[in-house]
Every structure is written in C-alpha cells, then in structure tokens.
Nucleic acid binder design. Structure first.
Lengths: 109, 109
DNA sequence: ACTTTTTACCTCGCCTGTCAATGTATATTA
DNA sequence: TAATATACATTGACAGGCGAGGTAAAAAGT
C-alpha cells in the first residue's frame, strides 16, 4: 500500500523540515530518505518536492546553496531558525490532528 | 487551535462514514457531532460536507432519504455494505498513514 | 567504446478537494 | 415580531499534488 497524495497534503512541508532538522540535504537525497524511512510507501513526486522547496524558501523556513566540487550539481537546503519553529509547530499540529482523527474515526459516541 | 482543511483533506469521507457507522443521520447533525467530538477543533464547512455527500453517494457508499413528519426538512444518509467496507479500508489507511508520518516526523535516522 | 541507468535539477498545466460567498426556507427563542 | 438556529444547496476561486515533459552529467553495465 502506498500513501495517496491527499492523505499527506498539508504535511509535505513538515516531512521536509523534519529531514532538514537532521542535516542539510538536497532534493534527490531527501526524497530517497523519505522513501527508505517509509518503506517505499511515501514518495514525494518531484514536482511536489520542488514546489514545496520554493514555498519553504519564500516563507523563510529554509535557505539553499549550491554544493561545490563533487557535489556541484546539487542544490543543498538548510533549515533556518524560523524553520525550526515552524517544524515544532507542525509537529504539534500533527499530534493534535492525530488525537482528533482518532476520536472521530473510532466510532463510539 | 483548529484543524486546517489541508490537514484532514482525504480523511473527510472517513469521518463522515464513521458517523454513519453509528446510525443514520443528516448533514447538520453530522457536522454538529463532529464539532462536539473534536471539541470545536474540526468543522467541516457546509460546501465541503455536501460535496462529500455527493461523492459518497455517487460511489455507492451511502444512500439518502428524506425524513418524514417533524424531520421532513432533513435528508438522512445511511451507510451501505460497500460503505462499511470502505470505512474499514479508510480506517486501516489512516492507521498506516499515522505510522509512517510518525516515523517521518520523529526526526532520528 | 557505447549504451543504459542513475543521479540531479526544473517547469507547465491539469485535477481535485476545500471553502467563502450566497441563496432559500422553516422552526425556535427572545 | 425580530432575531437566531436549524436545514438544505450551489458556484466559483484557490491551492497543493502530480503527470508529463525537459536538460544534463556521472556511473554502471556490456
């Protein structure tokens, strides 16, 4: 089973920021990591990924820079202090969403 | 805090079906129940709610009928056997999504 | 040597679900 | 009798995900 787009809509940015909390990284690697961690169940499509980067950068949550030497083809992203705040906020929001959804889907009451 | 639309996008139908697993109900009541259960944190906007009903009915997951007597103004919805299957499927999907999202947001690895 | 696959970036335009705005009409409460 | 709550519904705008398409270098396979 793989996760349909609408199920993670609104969580894409949180997932990306979570990756950048570990270390700077670039698009291709971030996506590979997401696929590995999710056992192949979640793959952010490239168009989705790159538009998300644009949004995050425009919002000041990440910055980007081109790698050098061997990594010259890669555009690296780094999370900003504001981005760390946003990550915390989105994490909390996810916990909250989980709780409510669990209540709503449980079916008693 | 209230839940933004994009966070539950793709789960709206699951929430509605969960309500109809309890008993037949109508739009206004379903929405009130959702608000109560979520402590006012989730409200399906009317346009969202009614378009979801249309989709669910078109897919054969629910049927509808007009109330009689005092309830003559209400359009009741009932879940179908196919809808029960869909509910089970969406519940499982939710559990799966939770697990993966938790892994992805946790931040280690 | 050359062919294929992988790595790595990016954009355009469509699709779908959400929602603000708007409309109608009855029942209840102040 | 005025205001609020109940109850239905549609339209058009908006935003995020994604299929399809494009470029180019590096690595691996033959």
């Amino acid at each position: 089973m793989s996760i349909a787009g609408d199920l993670i809509r609104g969580h894409t940015e949180a997932v990306i920021l979570a990756r950048l909390m570990i270390s700077d990284s670039y698009g291709y690697e971030i996506n590979k990591n997401i696929m590995t961690i999710s056992n192949g169940q979640l793959e952010l499509k490239e168009a989705t990924l790159y538009t998300a980067f644009r949004r995050l950068e425009a919002s000041g949550f990440i910055t980007s820079y081109w790698g050098d030497g061997d990594a010259a083809r890669r555009r690296y992203y780094a999370i900003t202090p504001l981005g760390r705040e946003e990550y915390a906020r989105l994490s909390y929001e996810w916990e909250n969403t989980k709780q409510i959804m669990d209540k709503l889907l449980k079916g008693d009451t």
